[in-house]
């Protein structure tokens, strides 16, 4: 089986799930990595080292910034001429559009957020979550190529073999751009919840420490946000110590405590870290659907009846303002930091 793996990157930074997709492609047979953009030497080298048999490089100034239309047209043209059986993508904001559009061009379909693949004779069967993961479905795509996106951390990362090379092919870009990229601003803190192995999340509870006295002159709302920031500082301390990311509930985002890019749940990100520590999060179903597949869930909440304890492995009934600093302290010692 020949698989194209689209190596999604943003300004040269590759999505780790792209390498995971490459590892998967190698299990299926021949892996051809596709690298689009400009100045692609580093990524090309890495693609070989993560196992690509061939790398198709499309280096063209039209493709400097990701734009849906020329990227999709370039991908579709390559797929038409070299007829892969499967095209794999790491699931990101970009690839969702890219795969979607190429599927229209190629009269095929996309299986999104695939958690597992199996072969049924000649046919590839994908297992994916639907209804926010409350139900799983097995789906097949009768078009060719089959297209699929995989979330981060669903498949193992392949071995990195320094110096490994393979066939390098250069191809031409399609330049049918319909959009112009005007600018970019990085999120205040680089949050890549999808790839995080550890996530420490703050909920509305981070604002609940009446003993903290805000600076004079703040109105009630400002004081609440100020308190929440003290709470999130504790959450962040622990996340930083563990090399993890900071998550948030929607109540924390809506309260203006932290930006939307941190939100976990139905209208935020669905995450599957090894360790998820929920602090001051009640555990509404819309939050649970975003994190219930974490390997180990720890919940810290004042309320012994909070529903978050129903999905947790370990629970602490207590004040996060007391528990979190103590936990960070102990872990710091145990980790020798």
């Amino acid at each position: 089986m020949k698989t194209f793996v689209y190596i999604d990157h943003f300004k040269g930074e590759v999505q780790p799930a792209a390498w995971e997709a490459l590892g998967l492609a190698k299990i299926f047979g021949t892996a051809v990595a596709l690298v689009f953009g400009t100045g692609l030497d580093e990524i090309t080298k890495a693609a070989f080292e993560y196992g690509a048999d061939e790398v198709i490089v499309v280096d063209d100034s039209t493709l400097t910034d990701y734009r849906a239309e020329p990227y999709a047209s370039t991908l579709s043209a390559l797929a038409s001429s070299s007829t892969p059986d499967l095209i794999l993508f790491p699931a990101t904001a970009r690839t969702r559009e890219l795969a979607a559009m190429s599927a229209v061009d190629l009269s095929t379909g996309v299986l999104t957020d695939v958690a597992k693949f199996e072969m049924n004779g000649e046919q590839l069967v994908a297992t994916r979550p639907i209804y926010e993961g409350k139900v799983l479905e097995k789906t097949v795509c009768s078009g060719k190529p089959v297209m699929a996106t995989i979330p981060g951390r669903a498949f193992p990362k392949p071995e990195h073999v320094a110096g490994k090379t393979g066939t390098l092919t250069k191809a031409a870009a399609k330049t049918d751009a319909l959009t112009t990229v005007q600018g970019y601003s990085a999120s205040e803190s680089a949050v890549n919840l999808g790839d995080a192995g550890i996530i420490v999340t703050g909920g509305r509870g981070v604002s609940n420490n009446p003993s903290l006295i805000p600076p004079a002159g703040m109105d009630e709302k400002q004081a609440e946000v100020w308190r929440a920031q003290q709470g999130f500082a504790l959450v962040t301390d622990l996340a930083l110590l563990l090399g993890g990311a900071v998550g948030a509930s929607r109540a924390a985002v809506d309260g203006g405590y932290i930006t939307y890019s941190h939100q976990v749940g139905q209208t935020g990100k669905v995450v599957t870290p090894d360790l998820y520590i929920a602090c001051g999060v009640s555990g509404a179903i819309q939050h649970i659907v975003g994190m219930r597949n974490a390997k180990i869930i720890v919940a810290i909440n004042k309320d012994a009846d909070a529903p978050i304890f129903k999905v947790a492995r370990y629970g602490v009934v207590g004040d996060l303002f007391a528990i979190l600093p103590a936990l960070t302290e102990v872990l710091k010692k145990k980790l020798g930091k």
């Binding site: 069967v125 097995k138 789906t139 999905v311 947790a312 629970g315 009934v317």
Partner: peptide, 23 residues
């Protein structure tokens, strides 16, 4: 004509572990 079709539906494995409260 649909190209992507569902062939099976499943319920996700239920959580078998109870929460352990730390006191």
């Amino acid at each position: 004509a649909p190209v992507v079709t569902r062939i099976e539906l499943m319920n996700p494995p239920t959580q078998e572990r109870e929460v352990e409260m730390i006191t």
